[in-house]
Design a protein around this nucleic acid. Structure first.
Lengths: 118, 118, 118, 118
DNA sequence: GTGGTCTAGACCACC
DNA sequence: GTGGTCTAGACCACA
């Protein structure tokens, strides 16, 4: 796992966890890696993983069971999608359209790239 | 001018300047606001504006003339677009397509929103 | 450590760091002094050390690891030498030859001083 | 006339004047350009030329005659050479030898370049 | 007036 | 503990 400079590491970890869940690699009710295990895996301080897990807990995506570990909530996928859709439609997409306008990029260009990538 | 929490203020200032130039509000060869004047205007410390201007100078977007001020370079628009296009096609667009895939959003939806916004 | 009047302190600090590396006193992969520790050592403000380290980072001479410190890059010596050689052959040496010409100093004089110093 | 970023403009002007004198383009007892005329010529503020002339006056290289102008002193060449030799042998040459040592450049290389240039 | 450098010190994020 | 950002203010050089 590699981290970007300009985004908080704990948020990048949270994103990674959310992605695993969305991709159905980590399923509801399943235990996710322990803080210490995960910290060693991705070569990061345990406190940073704690922050990521705490953030995901606040967003109702994972759940903590004392002495046992963290678990994917049943409503995790739903809440991740809600969050991500909110970010997507309210932040990412408007930013993209603004960039397109500033750079004078036509929608057809985007469409072409999208179809090529697909 | 309002600043976001999660991005360094000096970078937001640099973005603002670049935007003014792209929108042809500040033209090549023209003087941009002096450091201290601008700092007062947007209610930040002069050092923060200095960092923004220094960054833009490194990017060959503005130019400094001792004792006179900062000026928009002839190649400013070109350099801003080069930078922004690089970010757009190499970072923003791939991230967007990844989000669309994860959220199972079809391209037609994006197209619809784009046309409505237009 | 003593500073000259006519050169920015942060650049003199950067030069000092580069010199330690060239002299193999600070080796690749090794941690260099923390910003605040170094600032106290050489009796300057921490921000001044930050500027020096940021400059060296831009020149690909040192590397930052969040919360850990700055480290000498593997390619540090190479990059320092590249930079210094460029300055030496394109700026210092032509200036020296020009001075010699103006002052009517013969090359044999330089040679003599060089051999005596050696 | 073009100015470097990293050296005070008034010193670059003083260097230029000294060079003209050393090259016998401006001779002892002759009037050098008036402050205002020179300032216009090289597109610099008159105050900056005043500083340069004042500095040269302190170094006994030029002389001011009220209402008439600045003149090259008889001892100008001598004083310039004294100054320059001092700088050359006490500052430039030691710095060059230090650079050579750090970069592991042999004297023969310098000699070769010198002879080629000559 | 312009810009540049430096200081002292606060606050935040990450290890 | 590490580094990064920002502030307020002093001082200097150049136009």
């Amino acid at each position: 796992m590699e981290f970007q400079e300009k985004k908080a590491i704990y948020l990048q970890i949270a994103d990674y966890v959310a992605e695993q869940i969305l991709l159905n690699k980590w399923l509801p009710q399943q235990k996710i890696p322990s803080i210490r295990e995960f910290a060693v895996d991705i070569a990061v301080n345990a406190n940073t993983v704690i922050r990521a897990y705490t953030y995901l807990q606040e967003q109702k995506i994972i759940d903590m069971r004392r002495g046992i570990g963290y678990f994917v909530l049943d409503c995790a996928v739903e809440n991740i999608k809600r969050l991500k859709k909110q970010i997507f439609f309210q932040i990412e997409l408007p930013a993209l359209f603004k960039s397109m306008h500033l750079l004078n990029i036509h929608f057809s260009e985007i469409e072409k790239i999208y179809k090529e990538a697909k």
